[in-house]
């Protein structure tokens, strides 16, 4: 063949591959920021670290609402974050 054909396939499919991987990485990062399971599957194990992690700000909202924080009584004052 000639270099043009190979270049066309590498550029075309390579770009699509990079874009696909970047989408997956961005989606994973967004899920992590929101405290959602990194794998959006109904079969994800409930004890998965990502699935178990509370959403960010839950503690803050609970504190604002005067509720307990992480199972510990709020009466002791602001708790150190785990």
């Amino acid at each position: 063949m000639n270099g043009y054909v190979e270049a066309g396939y590498i550029v075309g499919l390579g770009t699509l591959g990079i874009y696909a991987v970047s989408l997956l990485a961005r989606e994973r990062a967004a899920r992590r920021r929101l405290g959602l399971s990194p794998v959006p599957s109904s079969r994800a194990r409930p004890d998965h670290a990502g699935a178990r992690r509370p959403r960010r700000g839950v503690e803050l909202r609970e504190r604002a609402a005067g509720e307990t924080v992480g199972g510990r009584p709020e009466a002791d004052g602001p708790q150190e974050q785990a």
Binding site: R56, G57, L60, R63, Q79, E80
Partner: peptide
């Protein structure tokens, strides 16, 4: 939406109780 909720919650927390010195509020 989460960012908006957090901003509101943060203001409420500031009004209701000051976080411990040096403690970074969650979120």
């Amino acid at each position: 939406g989460e960012g908006l909720e957090l901003a509101i919650a943060e203001r409420r927390a500031e009004a209701g109780g000051v976080p411990a010195r040096g403690e970074e509020p969650a979120g």
